[in-house]
Each structure stands twice: as structure tokens, then as C-alpha cells.
């Protein structure tokens, strides 16, 4: 019995190792980002660009439902993007990570040792970053995502659903706007402390997509100013166009293009998983 189990374990391990190797065979760098052109995907590419880290990009096609393929579920059992693998981790043992917020934390803790865009572990600013990262990942992202669903993708127009999630998204934007007004009084243009952190990076892609959720950024002047400040950074310019150029702002303004895009996205979003 015990030996059978040991054999099975060996077989499974061999299978997993082969699978991992075949995925990584064309990888030039230790870090691979599995992504698509979405607010959660660009968080990670923006951070990698800001840190100047080389990485491989593997585009995940939603049209082909690649996010549900067994090889990808091995990396991310939740079947969502982004995911990140780092083969250099733990002396070459490697690590697979899901959840954009966690990936950002992992990358700064592992690769931003001189705190270019982070604060030392355990400082007040460190904890401040954590709470704003969670605020985005548990609040802004999920709620704005629901606003997108009811405003753009749901086959049936449900005014209550649209209103509920647009109102909550606007409330959360108000919290960000107030925070940035307070930060401006201290002479900072960023959410935490006096420099760029992952709190800004995690939030940016969603604020940039405000129009897609039917939220007017003009109602949040401090937030708009913050977005424009980040727009100009090289890391943001490069990172937001991974894996394909970001067109969300243009699309939100062009009603016809928006309808076409929403219909296309709706087709796979409404697929049962």
C-alpha cells in the first residue's frame, strides 16, 4: 500500500515537472506573467516595468477559454488572470502565484530590496500600503467589475443592478478622492507616503477604466489629477500596453465600438464555468 502510494506520488511529480518544463521551454527570463488586457493584468506589467525586471509574457486567450485549461489551472486553480511564475524562487524550486494583489506584494518584497517603490516591512507606511491594496482588491475591483457586468455585459438590462454597483464604485472613488486631497495638502501626489507604491499601481488600471463602468472621472478631480500624473510615467506607459495596447478609454467614448466590444466580451463572460 505504502509503496503503491509512493510510486503514484513519483509518477505525479514526474508528470508535473514535465508539464512545467514544457510550458517554460521558450522562457527567456525567470519571471513569466500570464495575462490579458484587463485592469488586473496591467497592474503586474506596470510594476514589472517600474522595477525594470525582465519577464516573459504569455497572453491568455479568453476567446479560447485558456484560463480554464488544465495546464493553467495548475498555475492558478481559480482560473483567472493574472498569474505569475518565478522559476528563480527558492534556489530554483520555483513558485506559482495567483491574485494580482498578492503578486504585487511578492514582487516588491522579493525584488525591491532598496525600497524604490516600497517601504520597509513593518513601518507605518508599509501597513498603510497594505490597507489601500486590500481596499482596491476587495472593494474597488470587485464592485467596479459588477458595474461593468450590469452596465455593459448582462444580456438583460437591470436598472437596479447598474445603479447599485455604479453608486458603490462612485462611493469608493470618493474615498480615494478625499485621500488624495489630504495627500496633496502634505505635498504628495500618491496614495501613501511621498512616493509611488503598489497602492497606486493596483488602483490605476481600474480608475483608467472608469468610463467603461459608466463613472465620470470629472466628478473626482483629485483622482483625475493623480491618474494624469501616473499616465506620464514610463513604466505605466509600457506596462499598461501589455499584452496588447490598452484601448479602454477610447472605447468608453465611442458608443458603437463599446457596444461591439461588450457583445464580444459578453459572449465568453456568459459562458457557464
Amino acid at each position: 500500500m505504502a509503496s503503491t502510494l509512493a510510486n503514484r506520488t513519483k509518477l505525479i511529480t514526474r508528470h508535473l515537472t514535465t508539464a512545467a518544463k514544457s510550458i517554460m521551454s521558450d522562457a527567456k527570463h525567470p519571471i513569466t506573467l500570464y495575462t490579458a488586457q484587463t485592469p488586473n493584468g496591467v497592474k503586474v506589467s506596470i510594476l514589472l516595468e517600474e522595477l525594470g525586471l525582465p519577464y516573459n509574457v504569455r497572453t491568455i486567450s479568453f476567446d479560447k477559454t485558456e484560463q480554464k485549461e488544465p495546464w493553467f489551472l495548475e498555475i492558478n486553480p481559480n482560473g483567472r488572470i493574472p498569474a505569475l511564475t518565478d522559476s528563480s524562487f527558492d534556489n530554483g524550486k520555483g513558485i506559482n502565484l495567483m491574485e494580482s494583489g498578492c503578486i504585487l506584494q511578492y514582487l516588491v518584497e522579493t525584488y525591491d530590496k532598496d525600497h524604490k517603490i516600497s517601504y520597509p516591512h513593518g513601518t507605518a507606511e508599509y501597513w498603510d500600503v497594505q490597507q489601500w491594496v486590500y481596499f482596491q482588491n476587495a472593494g474597488v475591483g470587485p464592485m467596479q467589475g459588477q458595474a461593468n457586468h450590469f452596465y455593459r455585459y448582462a444580456p438583460e438590462k437591470i436598472p437596479y443592478g447598474i445603479n447599485r454597483y455604479q453608486t458603490e464604485t462612485a462611493r469608493l472613488y470618493g474615498v480615494l478622492n478625499t485621500r488624495l486631497e489630504q495627500q496633496a495638502k502634505k505635498g504628495s501626489g500618491f496614495l501613501v507616503g511621498d512616493k509611488l507604491t503598489i497602492a497606486d499601481i493596483t488602483t490605476y488600471g481600474w480608475v483608467r477604466s472608469a468610463g467603461w463602468a459608466g463613472i465620470d472621472i470629472e466628478n473626482f478631480p483629485a483622482l483625475k489629477k493623480w491618474e494624469e500624473l501616473l499616465d506620464e510615467r514610463e513604466g505605466f506607459k509600457k506596462g499598461r500596453d501589455v499584452p496588447t495596447p490598452s484601448r479602454i478609454k477610447e472605447m468608453a467614448k465611442d458608443e458603437e465600438a463599446a457596444k461591439r466590444e461588450a457583445a464580444k466580451a459578453s459572449a465568453w463572460i456568459m459562458k457557464k464555468d
Binding site: 481559480n78 502565484l97 498578492c102
Partner: peptide, 16 residues
């Protein structure tokens, strides 16, 4: 790192 990943999954996936 993995514990934080699951905590983030709880916060952004399960909770909302």
C-alpha cells in the same frame, strides 16, 4: 507567500 495569496483570494474573491 502562499498564505498571503489565499488571504487575497478570500478578500477579493470569496468576500465580495
Amino acid at each position: 507567500a502562499l498564505a498571503k495569496q489565499y488571504l487575497m483570494f478570500q478578500m477579493s474573491g470569496q468576500g465580495p
